[in-house]
């Protein structure tokens, strides 16, 4: 898709697009208000202001619903949990997506997800929790301040990007709903909506929709595990999993489920979509591991996007995608070739 044509193709009504000057103005106002307040200095001593992101004028911005904007604008960078690798350009992040519900080509989600309705949005919390229920997303997000975290994203297909998410720790959300002692796993489910999602209607697809992913409880509670509502200083575009998605940076990208409508707690391991579709190729754990190849291709290296044509940007893949210090202990004593 040509960058010049992208706004047309994405079919964003111009009223939905915040112009750069207004965006910056708002940001400055909020920053001024925040710096006058003592909150950031005291509550989060190690946090810095989120960086201003370079978004070319000819690309659409996604301001999100009105109730979310203040929250997005006051997100602060968490430097301790951010990597210093160079960010992928905004264009790459919003046009190169695996969101099979909207088509299997990387360019399909940006083409076909633009009218996807993401507000209002409800999330069902169910299973082994003290406070199950069907909650408005706004109410779910209410108590959480957003952080800006720069994570590596490693796709199981051996490409990768560096992405600045806006979100909050999944652990904080889980604690609020008070899981019982029987809660050993968390299941996540993407919306099932055949009207809006063309691939859910395909006769030749092998995924049994809706898409399901899951984590072991200790993985879900790890400080790195993020519930994201924004990217690049704005709300999540629909193609990136709006309005609520998971980001688990030490696992292959397919674990980071998009457009979540259900969070379920159980004693048993969930049957996750790719694992069910091709159990020999995609494990439940799906930790990034250069030593364990996909049966059809190598996982030892990855193409970091953007990658130039004549000298592709090939880098070595790191165990746990470079997050071994934070998460390797979760898998102590496990045979990672068996539990891939």
């Amino acid at each position: 898709m040509s960058k010049r044509l992208i706004r047309e193709a994405l079919n964003i009504p111009s009223s939905e697009i915040t112009s750069e000057s207004i965006y910056k103005q708002r940001r400055r106002l909020i920053q001024a208000a925040m710096s006058a307040a003592i909150l950031p200095a005291f509550t989060y001593p190690s946090f810095a202001r989120a960086a201003g992101y370079e978004i070319p004028d000819d690309l659409p911005r996604y301001p999100g619903p009105a109730w979310l904007r203040q929250k997005l604008a006051s997100a602060v960078r968490n430097p301790d949990l951010s990597v210093s690798d160079e960010l992928a350009p905004y264009y790459h992040i919003i046009t190169h997506n695996n969101f099979y519900e909207f088509g299997t080509d990387k360019r399909d989600p940006a083409r076909y997800a633009q009218n996807f309705k993401t507000d209002p949005w409800k999330v069902e919390i169910s299973g082994e929790v003290a406070k199950p229920g069907n909650y408005n997303l706004e109410d779910i997000l209410a108590p959480h301040a957003l952080e800006d975290r720069v994570y590596r994203l490693r796709c199981v297909e051996a490409w990768s990007m560096v992405i600045p998410w806006l979100g909050f720790p999944l652990a904080d959300l889980i604690k609020r709903f008070e899981p019982t002692s029987k809660a050993k796993y968390v299941h996540f489910t993407t919306i099932l909506d055949k009207e809006q999602m063309s691939e859910q209607r395909s006769s030749f697809g092998t995924i049994d929709w809706p898409y399901v992913e899951g984590l072991r409880m200790d993985e879900a509670m790890n400080p790195l595990t993020l519930m994201a509502v924004g990217v690049y200083g704005n709300a999540l575009p629909p193609q990136n999993g709006a309005p609520l998605r998971l980001v688990v940076p030490w696992k292959y990208g397919f674990k980071s489920i998009k457009s979540i409508v259900r969070i379920h707690f159980s004693e048993t391991m969930p049957e996750t979509s790719w694992n069910v579709t091709a159990p020999s190729e995609y494990g439940f754990y799906a930790n990034v591991n250069p030593a364990v190849d996909h049966p059809r291709w190598s996982q030892a290296t990855e193409r970091r996007l953007p990658s130039s044509l004549l000298s592709p940007n090939i880098v070595d893949t790191l165990p746990f995608n470079g997050y071994a210090d934070q998460v390797a202990h979760l898998y102590k004593g496990m045979d990672l070739a068996k539990w891939f």
Partner: peptide, 13 residues
């Protein structure tokens, strides 16, 4: 040449 192959032209080509 027209930058029309998306964010990862290599794979598309």
């Amino acid at each position: 040449l027209n930058d029309n192959l998306g964010a990862d032209p290599a794979k598309v080509i």
